[in-house]
C-alpha cells in the first residue's frame, strides 16, 4: 500500500503556544485513521493544519505534511485551493451550519462542484441524486430543493457528506462527523462512510472522542493528549493493549453497554 498523506514531526502553534507537538502519522490508500483524545488535545488542529485552515493566529512551526509528492505546508494558498475539495475533502461536526441558510441545498452543491470543474447544473443534480440514493437519503429531488433548515440534523449531515464525496476526493477528513447525531442516525452515517470507502477506495481521517466509533471504523489510531502523541498503531492492538497509561485511562473511562445477559 502506498502512503497518500503523511505528517512528519508536525508542530502547530496558536499565538506562539504549541498545541500540537511532534506528531507523525501516515495514511495509506483506502485506509481509515482515527485521531482520538479529550477536548483540547489538538485533534481538530491536526486536520486544520492539513487543509491549511489554521487562520491568522495559527501556524505550522515545525515538521511537514506531505500529500503524495506535494509538501502541503510549503504550498501557497492559491496552490492549496487546487487540493481542497477535489483531492482532500472535509466533513464537519455540523454540516447544516456550513450551508448558507437562505439558499437551497441544490444550489450550494452546484456552486461547490462548479468551482472545481466545468459542469452543468442538471448534471450536478443528477450526480448528487444518484449519490444521495446510494447513501440512503430518500427523495433526493426534494432534498435538493430544500433549504438547510427544512432538513433534520442527520439529513444535513448526509448532504454534507454527499457534497464532499461528489468531487471524489482521495482523502476525506471527517471532524466528529457523527457526534451531533442520535445513535440510530449515527449508525447509518457510519455505514454510509464505510460504503464510500468500498465504492471509491477513499482514505479517511476520522477525528472523534467516541471509542466505539474508532473500533467500528478505523484501521489505525492515533491517541493525542495535550498535543502530544500518546499511542499510534493498529486499532485492535492499541485498544486491547494500550501502550501508554493515558490510553489505558481513556479506555477505562468508557462506560460499556452490557447487551448480553451474563
Amino acid at each position: 500500500m502506498n502512503s497518500l498523506l503523511r505528517a512528519d514531526h508536525l508542530t502547530v502553534c496558536y499565538e506562539g503556544i504549541p498545541v500540537v507537538q511532534d506528531v507523525s502519522f501516515q495514511l495509506n490508500e483506502g485506509e481509515i485513521l482515527g485521531i482520538v483524545g479529550e477536548s483540547g488535545s489538538g485533534k481538530s488542529t491536526v486536520i486544520r493544519a492539513i487543509m491549511g485552515l489554521l487562520g491568522n493566529n495559527g501556524a505550522v512551526t515545525g515538521g511537514e505534511i506531505w500529500y503524495r509528492d506535494q509538501c502541503l505546508t510549503e504550498t501557497s494558498e492559491r496552490e492549496l485551493m487546487k487540493y481542497r475539495g477535489t483531492e482532500i475533502g472535509m466533513v464537519f461536526q455540523d454540516c447544516g451550519a456550513g450551508f448558507c441558510p437562505v439558499r437551497t441545498v441544490g444550489a450550494q452543491i452546484y456552486e461547490a462542484v462548479k468551482a472545481h470543474e466545468k459542469i452543468s447544473r442538471v448534471q450536478v443534480e443528477k450526480n448528487a441524486g444518484a449519490l444521495m440514493e446510494k447513501i440512503g437519503l430518500k427523495d433526493p429531488r426534494r432534498v435538493l430543493k430544500s433549504y438547510p433548515f427544512q432538513l433534520s440534523g442527520g439529513m444535513n449531515q448526509r448532504v454534507g457528506i454527499c457534497a464532499a464525496m461528489l468531487l471524489r476526493p482521495s482523502v476525506l477528513l471527517a471532524d466528529e462527523p457523527t457526534s451531533a447525531l442520535d445513535v440510530t442516525v449515527q449508525k447509518q452515517v457510519v455505514e454510509e462512510l464505510l460504503l464510500m470507502r468500498e465504492e471509491f477506495q477513499t482514505s479517511m481521517i476520522l477525528v472523534t472522542h467516541n471509542m466505539g466509533l474508532v473500533k467500528k471504523m478505523t484501521d489505525r489510531v492515533l491517541v493525542l493528549c495535550n498535543g502530544q502523541m500518546m499511542d499510534y498503531g493498529k486499532t485492535e492492538e492499541i485498544l486491547e493493549h494500550p501502550g501508554s497509561a493515558y490510553t489505558q485511562k481513556l479506555m477505562d473511562s468508557v462506560i460499556r453497554l452490557k447487551k448480553e445477559q451474563l
Binding site: V183, T184, K187, N210, M211, G212, R256, L257, K259
Partner: peptide, 10 residues
C-alpha cells in the same frame, strides 16, 4: 431494539 442495536461495542 433499534436503539440498543445502534450502540457500537467496544
Amino acid at each position: 431494539r433499534i436503539l440498543v442495536d445502534a450502540v457500537f461495542d467496544i
